[in-house]
Design a protein around this nucleic acid. Sequence first.
DNA 1: TATCTTATTGCAATTCAATATCAAGTAAAA
DNA 2: TTTTACTTGATATTGAATTGCAATAAGATA
Lengths: 146, 146
Amino acid sequence: MNKEEKLQKLVDISREKGLKLTPQRMAIFRILSESDKHLTADEVYQKARKDYPMLSAATVYRNMEQMVSSGLLSNLGRSGAAMKYDTNLEEHHHFICSHCGKVYDVYLSKVTYELDMEKSRLGDAKIDVSELYLYGVCEDCLNNYG
Amino acid sequence: MNKEEKLQKLVDISREKGLKLTPQRMAIFRILSESDKHLTADEVYQKARKDYPMLSAATVYRNMEQMVSSGLLSNLGRSGAAMKYDTNLEEHHHFICSHCGKVYDVYLSKVTYELDMEKSRLGDAKIDVSELYLYGVCEDCLNNYG
DNA sequence: TATCTTATTGCAATTCAATATCAAGTAAAA
DNA sequence: TTTTACTTGATATTGAATTGCAATAAGATA
Ligand SMILES: [Zn+2]
Ligand SMILES: [Zn+2]
Ligand SMILES: [Zn+2]
Ligand SMILES: [Zn+2]
């Protein structure tokens, strides 16, 4: 899905939900769809401010959360760090470098596991989704710090 | 590992690392080792305050983080929620109820997956650990809210 | 185009978890 | 008992995110 298609989706969903397409909202989404990284609300805010000096941080936070609810963004949160957002809606998982903290998208297939029902006291819980996080040291850090 | 063994480990590791066994530290650890739930620093603080009215919250935060570094506690953080701690050091994963937010320990074996090296731009990254989170609706919520 | 409705914005104040600072206190070794 | 390094409590501060509200403006309607 390229930038134009993503932007069209923003337009469609906004119409569908009776949301208004403000310049602020479009700037925020454009920044995210033009980046291939996972950005925090503050990073988006800092970038958007260059074009919109009077933009409020609250607007950025509000919009990005709303875009997640609308299915326009996926998000990835870890405690201690700010929530990260991106427009990559493909099913994917994440690799997190323990050294530099950078997050990499990884594409995993055939994720399987066996659940020990005896030890796990889940009863009849309904399991919907599983998220797998890989931790390690990224290539950059391996090269630079051994 | 029962309570006594856990407490002995606290004593051993403290000696080993030149840490002092203060009453506050022992109270904090005792509360955690007597609970079978994942507690937040504030929950531990509230419980400990009943016996130690002049205990400071900072002491609880400090100690619990220190216990993680010392290998006495495991912790589980999700953005937006306070860090949760417990004395369960067995290798385990977590099930999180999307409805009530409660966290359940689950024991998984044979966790496997296939990594798409083409799409995942990890290069020669060294992968150490994988953490699997299961999401769904817990038994309690299923019973109470359909 | 002018008007209306209501989503949205900007701002400031606020929440909440967590951390930093530092003087005073104390566990444990010598 | 003395010494010393680790800890504590109180308070201030940080950082991320949220909230309340009056003012604004997008998009529908006439
Ligand atoms: Zn790295
Ligand atoms: Zn991602
Ligand atoms: Zn539940
Ligand atoms: Zn656990």
